[in-house]
Simulated assay, not measured.
Amino acid sequence: MRTRTLLAAAAAGVLLVGPVQATSLAEPAATNPAATPSAPVSAVLAAPDIPIANVRAHLTQLQTIATNNGGNRAHGRPGYRASVDYIRARLDAAGYTTTLQSFTSGGATGYNLLAEWPRGDANNVIMAGGHLDSVTAGPGINDNGSGSAALLEVALAVSRQNLTPTNRLRFGWWGAEERGLVGSTYYVNNLPSADRSRIRGYLNFDMIGSPNPGYFVYSASGQPSGSAELQRVLAAPFAAMGVPTELTSVGGRSDHAAFARAGIPIGGLFTGAEGTKTSAQAQKWGGTAGQAYDRCYHASCDTTSNINATALDRNSDAIAQAVWTLVGG
């Protein structure tokens, strides 16, 4: 996650209890005027449980890649390209249509990896993504190996279930986020207007395994029309788990920002970065009050030891539930 002071988290609690049916999103704001809502989906296949062992195995691979390539997976470094190649190979084998989009930042070539499940209405696209690059200081296993690994395993679960969704599903792993959201901004800015208008919502997953975790859902306040539905869908799995959430405004510090500027509804999950867990949060979620959610944020100690397995498991399952709900089974 890009360095910037977090805005205050607010509105503790969840918004919905019980199962959620897939629904179309409201028409995006005027900056996305060509978009029209898709037809409601009346029934949804149950999302599978995402095997936490598989997610952690992906994190181990990302750690090994960093260790073998100078200790990091940063933009322009060999560890980043090796991370892209690892994820792409598994998506290709699972039947995805993958695209490697290149761009230049700081005199080095960067890459976005896009993966599309080739079923569902291509005029109604749901996107889920997170950044794959680390800072140069360390391997970036929580930031953002955690989101990247969970997204990969959710994508593989789609393939294992041989899902035939109503809406089209597209995943993105962004490059050079740590340099200022470069990759995701490049992607959105270079989308033809017709293609941009087909994206009904974007979900962002950046740091979902913090060792002293909070359970934060991106607030829809001030975001494009339709974001409130994404907030509701992302909060619902935690309600079913009996895990309270808080809304947080992450401002422009992660890859949802470019989509929001384009008028595309956005949502996301987050377990905290350099901010300090309060006593009230420690009572609610466990962990240690007065300490950062992630004491290894942007540091060399952001390794596979810097992951809370329970938070990673809960968030991975929540991602799957949101994806299945929004694309329809």
Score class of each variant (00 low, 15 high):
residue 113 L to G: 04
residue 114 L to E: 01
residue 114 L to S: 06
residue 114 L to F: 05
residue 114 L to W: 02
residue 115 A to D: 09
residue 115 A to C: 13
residue 115 A to V: 14
residue 116 E to W: 02
residue 116 E to D: 14
residue 116 E to L: 12
residue 117 W to Q: 11
residue 117 W to K: 08
residue 117 W to A: 11
residue 118 P to G: 15
residue 119 R to D: 14
residue 119 R to C: 03
residue 119 R to E: 13
residue 119 R to S: 14
residue 119 R to Y: 08
residue 120 G to Q: 05
residue 120 G to T: 04
residue 121 D to H: 00
residue 122 A to G: 02
residue 123 N to G: 11
residue 124 N to F: 04
residue 124 N to H: 14
residue 124 N to L: 00
residue 124 N to D: 08
residue 124 N to R: 13
residue 125 V to Q: 02
residue 125 V to E: 02
residue 125 V to H: 01
residue 126 I to E: 07
residue 126 I to C: 06
residue 127 M to D: 07
residue 127 M to V: 14
residue 130 G to T: 04
residue 131 H to F: 00
residue 131 H to Y: 02
residue 132 L to A: 11
residue 133 D to V: 07
residue 133 D to L: 11
residue 133 D to H: 05
residue 133 D to P: 07
residue 134 S to E: 02
residue 134 S to C: 08
residue 134 S to Q: 01
residue 134 S to F: 04
residue 135 V to P: 00
residue 135 V to L: 03
residue 135 V to K: 00
residue 137 A to H: 08
residue 138 G to W: 09
residue 138 G to Y: 09
residue 139 P to R: 09
residue 140 G to W: 06
residue 141 I to C: 08
residue 141 I to L: 15
residue 141 I to D: 01
residue 142 N to Q: 07
residue 143 D to C: 12
residue 144 N to V: 04
residue 144 N to F: 03
residue 144 N to I: 06
residue 145 G to R: 15
residue 145 G to V: 15
residue 146 S to I: 15
residue 146 S to E: 10
residue 148 S to A: 15
residue 148 S to C: 09
